[in-house]
């Protein structure tokens, strides 16, 4: 099975890397992250590191989400519309193998994106941290907290989050008929995922009726809580505030949703007419 999935993933990865859309978003993300450097001209004190980090996290979240919706949809529909899928699926390649190969290729590109932005952000923070720390010491302020393992953990969480979004988009793409529909519905699903925490919070309160509670329960089980993955600020700038085990639990949560969406995607794709 892997002997067929990996070549598909490899070709998908190479194809995605060559796409102008990916190149444009990657350059934009790196440029925006770099654009935070002139902020040092404003005297923020210890806040400078927070501003740098927040901008990097925001870029990763926004442009990463855009990429995670558009790229898998584009890669799937390029195969279907150009009819390369016809050639591939006439071979002894299962629908699940095809979908998994597309997913892994797209996910690898998204990982390159997240790691590249995180690496640049890490370099910027490492560059500025000594000066900010020296200034804090001069002014008798608390030294700035900065955790590079926290940044690595955040990058890992982003890779997981982008994987969940990519799997969600592929599931929608397997059901949908057009690229545009997939992207629009995918974007709405991502937005819903960013807002699921509100339903999760509401579910904790006891003042709901059975129907409302049922609706909240269904929505919190169907959509992943994507907001939970945005712990960058806490992980990097206040590492002590993140409870032990949070990152592994989030990774496990991401993995279960990822598997769920891929499975649903396969169920939708297995009877699709090519």
């Amino acid at each position: 099975m892997l002997a067929r999935i990996l070549p598909i993933a490899r070709v998908t990865f190479l194809e995605a890397l060559r796409q102008r859309f990916f190149g444009f978003l990657l350059v934009l993300a790196l440029a925006l992250t770099l654009a935070s450097l002139p902020l040092k001209a404003i005297d923020f004190g210890n806040q400078e590191l927070k501003f740098l980090a927040d901008l990097g996290f925001g870029v990763m979240l926004l442009l990463g989400s855009v990429l995670a919706v558009v790229l898998p949809a584009q890669l799937l529909y390029a195969e279907l519309d150009n009819r390369t899928a016809l050639t591939l699926l006439a071979k002894p390649v299962g629908r699940a193998e095809f979908l998994l190969g597309k997913f892994l290729g797209a996910w690898a590109v998204l990982a390159v994106f997240a790691v590249a932005v995180a690496a640049l952000l890490g370099a910027i923070l490492a560059l500025r941290e000594p000066e900010v720390a020296a200034r804090a010491a001069r002014l008798d302020l608390a030294p700035p907290e900065l955790s590079f393992p926290g940044l690595a953990a955040h990058a890992l969480l982003q890779v997981a989050r982008l994987g969940v979004v990519a799997a969600l988009t592929l599931m929608i793409g397997a059901l949908a008929r057009t690229f545009l529909y997939t992207v629009v519905v995918g974007a709405m699903a991502v937005l819903a995922g960013q807002l699921v925490w509100i339903a999760q919070e509401a579910l904790r309160r006891p003042d709901h009726g059975a129907v409302a509670k049922g609706a909240l329960w269904v929505s919190t089980h169907l959509f992943p809580n994507l907001q939970a993955f945005n712990l960058g600020e806490a992980l990097v700038l206040a590492p002590g505030t993140v409870e032990a085990g949070t990152v592994p639990w989030l990774l496990l949560s991401g993995a279960t949703y990822l598997l769920l969406f891929l499975l649903l995607g396969w169920l939708a794709f297995r009877r699709r007419e090519i």
Binding site: W197, E201, H221, Q227, A228, L231, T241, T246, W249
Partner: peptide, 21 residues
Amino acid sequence: ALALAAGSVAESAWSRARRAV
């Protein structure tokens, strides 16, 4: 089964993560 598991795991993950949010 995965949907049920995913919801429960997500709930546990959020109950840990929300303190940092």
